[in-house]
Amino acid sequence: MRKAAEINEHTPWQELTPGAEIYEPATSKLVNTGDWRTMTPIFIEDKCKHCLICVPFCPDSSIPVAEGKRTDFDFMHCKGCGICYKVCPFGAIQFEKEEK
């Protein structure tokens, strides 16, 4: 069966999944919503105490956590809302105009 990655706006009807079903989890990861950003959060690792309070507040699941520590932003999906910057108690996130 066709994978989401192989489906696009040129796919003929014979090759689309029947009933618009998708048989894989979380195919939205393929979508670059990072290009929505006009402001960018910048992770200042030195200041970060890894309290992780920014993590659950992210609407775009873009703050990965590994081994108890947050890592840099997932910029393919981060839309630059600035919520993380506001909730960070340690000034470990800066929020700046996106440079493209």
Binding site: S28, N32, P59, D60, S61, C78
Partner: peptide, 22 residues
């Protein structure tokens, strides 16, 4: 809890800053 695998992936098209996905 924060280390659990994420069950809602990024790449959805909700507004930046949306409360619903949170």
């Amino acid at each position: 809890e924060m280390e659990k695998p994420e069950r809602l992936a990024g790449g959805h098209r909700l507004c930046a800053g949306c409360g619903a996905s949170v």
